[in-house]
């Protein structure tokens, strides 16, 4: 049985597919979206998370850190030197306060299913199920295929959320096990797409079309990021794409949230997205939804 690198399992997910779901977040992503709400999901390797507020200054971590990445601050709490840290996790093992944690752990299909199945009554009652998200689940096709298979054997409805940047063969391989694709579409302008996400738009749109033409059920999900992609021309681009793909289940605009910024210091990460970017208002979301509706787009949710 293969293992997958999981960085979180969130129960009672109510925004990622129909009904009540459990979302399994897989680590590693080929894109680098400026606004990524899970900055810890990008790197496929495990990453050290450090929460200074939780540190009790017991000092246990310093002697076990071989690369010497941990130093003491004035209060005796740890400070992580990210340039030296190798994310080996030795310090995590001695951190009783759980201030140091390694995010991204290898789990078997049955370990994941053990958690997923605890909420199966809720799925049955609400029409929910399992959602795989990330990161990019398609980076771990073998594990995803086995997990979907196991979930289907239990009669669970399965969604996969993808940014679409993967080879055709990966979609081919997984298609059978996915009841609903949550396909992210981020930018219509090719130049800006590369600028915002680090990858070219063409590949993603090509995979989307192929998947669509193969008869897969797809919900197109478009994050709305103020100052980036909330321009009318992108909304028109979404509408145009939806016209080309008539069998889409629908289009869903997702409002940007900025809670992810709180995660950055835990991982020693920085962002290029200016902090003047704030979540859109309810009224803005309505305007954009109306814009799409006015162009004949079927909205979901």
């Amino acid at each position: 049985m293969s293992t997958g690198r999981v960085f979180d399992i969130q129960r009672f997910s109510i925004h990622d597919g129909p009904g009540i779901r459990t979302t399994v977040f897989l680590k590693g992503c080929p894109l680098r979206c400026l606004w990524c709400s899970n900055p810890e999901s990008l790197d496929p390797k495990p990453q050290l998370s450090y929460l200074a507020a939780t540190c009790i200054a017991c000092g246990a971590c310093f002697p076990v850190c071989k690369p010497g990445a941990l130093t003491k601050d004035a209060a005796g709490k740890a400070v992580v030197d990210r340039a030296r840290c190798t994310n080996c996790g030795d310090c995590v093992a001695v951190c009783d306060a759980q201030a140091l944690e390694l995010v991204g752990r290898d789990m078997t299909v049955s370990e994941v299913m053990d958690v997923v199945l605890r909420d199966r009554d809720y799925y049955a009652q609400s029409g929910g199920g399992l959602t795989l998200s990330g990161g990019e689940p398609l980076l771990q096709p073998e594990f995803v295929e086995e997990l979907l298979h196991a979930a289907h054997n239990q009669g669970l409805h399965c969604c996969v959320e993808t940014a679409g940047y993967a080879g055709c063969e990966v979609f081919e391989r997984l298609k059978r096990g996915v009841d609903l694709w949550l396909f992210d579409y981020k930018e219509s302008d090719p130049h800006l797409h590369t600028k915002f996400t680090g990858r070219e738009r063409e590949t993603i749109v090509a995979r989307l079309s192929q998947l669509h033409d193969s008869g897969a059920k797809i919900l197109l999900r478009c994050p709305m990021i103020p100052q980036c992609n909330t321009r009318p021309d992108h909304l028109d681009g979404i509408a145009a794409l939806a016209r080309q793909l008539p069998k889409l289940v629908g289009v869903e605009l997702l409002p940007y949230f900025d809670l992810w910024r709180a995660k950055l210091p835990r991982f020693g990460l920085t962002t290029a997205l200016p902090d003047t970017v704030k979540p859109p208002t309810r009224e803005q979301m309505k305007t954009w939804n109306d814009h799409l509706r006015g162009r004949g787009v079927r909205l979901a949710g």
Binding site: I14, G19, I20, Y122, S126
Partner: peptide
């Protein structure tokens, strides 16, 4: 917000039905 949104409230209700059934 969860109460105000029809689809989320439906999920909440489903969850409560399961809780009491169980």
């Amino acid at each position: 917000g969860m109460i105000g949104d029809d689809s989320q409230r439906e999920k909440l209700r489903a969850m409560l039905n399961v809780y009491f059934q169980n």
